[in-house]
Computed example of a mutant assay.
Amino acid sequence: MHMRHPEVEKRPVSRPYALPSFTSLSCFEAAARNNSFKAAAAELNVTPAAVSHQIKALEAEMAQPLFRRQHRGVELTEAGAFLFVAVQRGFEGISGAVREIRGRPEGEDVIIHATTAVSAFWLTPQISHFWSHHPETVVSQVVSDVEPMEDRVDLSIRYGPIPDDDGTYVTLFTDNIVAVGSKEFARRYAVASVADLAAAPLVHVTTRRVEWTGWKDWLGAFGVEAQTGKRTTVNNFMIALQLAQDGVGAVLGWERLIGTLLEQEALVPLVPDHLVSPHPFYLQIHPRASAEARFVAEWIARQAG
């Protein structure tokens, strides 16, 4: 005699991490880094339609848009920029573990670390120019606002005081720091002086690694002791620039670094005053750097000068 066993209720297995699919995150990261679905598709060796499909699915899961679709590409929304920083941090951790396990192979690329803003606005155009003269040299970037392990990269581009130690550092350039915002922001708050800026909404950037010069120092240089308007704080310079373009507040920008945004008038100087940056952008040459990496470093230094 056969007895029927009661049906065992199947309970859904909970995942330890609240994550979308890795495919959608990979497509998102590539599109955000390249500001283009088409460029992301070429990098991932898939069609632009496939990238678009994955990102639409991710946006549906997030219940909000992550990109603004533009005629010549895409740009991150505030939510997209926030997610991009988190995804980069996660991918950087995974990449570091994989490299540690594999070890460094012979003949590896020259690897340069830079923050998202420095890579997008200054380093990537420099590397493209380098390749036009030296196509045989492979240069890769670790683009991250999270500090990678030093034995993973050959060169790093940083902003801040040059360390007083036995390391090898090369000053690239100093820059003028200007207060910038959208045209609509300037009209709305009738910004005409540094004192007007202090009473307007300002976007502050606070990070643990990059010592970006802040509003306190900038305002103080012109005799204004403190901000009295609304304060918004983010931990990523690219997010701060996007907020400024959206009219959320004014942000400090380095003229040479954000030259493209100024040329396009996506951001405009709000007052004629500027502050010469107290710190330079500089290149760190790590101990593991090969002769080829040092050649790249010399070339970058010449271009900066």
Rank of each mutant, 00 (worst) to 15 (best):
residue 213 T to M: 13
residue 286 H to L: 09
residue 61 E to D: 05
residue 135 P to C: 05
residue 301 A to L: 03
residue 86 A to L: 07
residue 176 N to S: 15
residue 189 Y to S: 04
residue 241 L to P: 15
residue 120 A to E: 13
residue 30 A to K: 00
residue 287 P to Q: 02
residue 296 V to Q: 00
residue 15 R to F: 11
residue 242 Q to M: 11
residue 246 D to Y: 08
residue 251 V to S: 14
residue 57 A to R: 09
residue 156 S to L: 15
residue 42 A to N: 12
residue 204 H to Q: 12
residue 188 R to I: 07
residue 111 I to E: 04
residue 165 D to V: 03
residue 80 G to W: 05
residue 18 A to E: 00
residue 269 P to A: 00
residue 194 V to R: 10
residue 36 S to T: 03
residue 156 S to I: 10
residue 27 C to G: 00
residue 3 M to H: 07
residue 220 G to Q: 13
residue 287 P to I: 07
residue 40 A to V: 06
residue 119 S to N: 11
residue 211 E to V: 11
residue 241 L to E: 14
residue 162 I to M: 06
residue 239 I to N: 15
residue 243 L to Y: 08
residue 192 A to D: 02
residue 132 S to I: 04
residue 76 L to S: 02
residue 195 A to W: 06
residue 300 I to E: 05
residue 210 V to W: 11
residue 265 E to A: 15
residue 151 D to M: 02
residue 146 V to C: 07
residue 265 E to H: 14
residue 76 L to M: 10
residue 281 F to K: 00
residue 209 R to W: 15
residue 103 G to T: 08
residue 284 Q to G: 11
residue 266 A to T: 13
residue 237 F to W: 09
residue 96 G to V: 12
residue 226 A to C: 08
residue 32 A to F: 04
residue 86 A to M: 02
residue 28 F to T: 00
residue 239 I to K: 15
residue 160 G to C: 12
residue 125 P to R: 01
residue 155 L to H: 07
residue 254 W to M: 05
residue 8 V to I: 14
residue 153 V to C: 04
residue 112 I to Y: 11
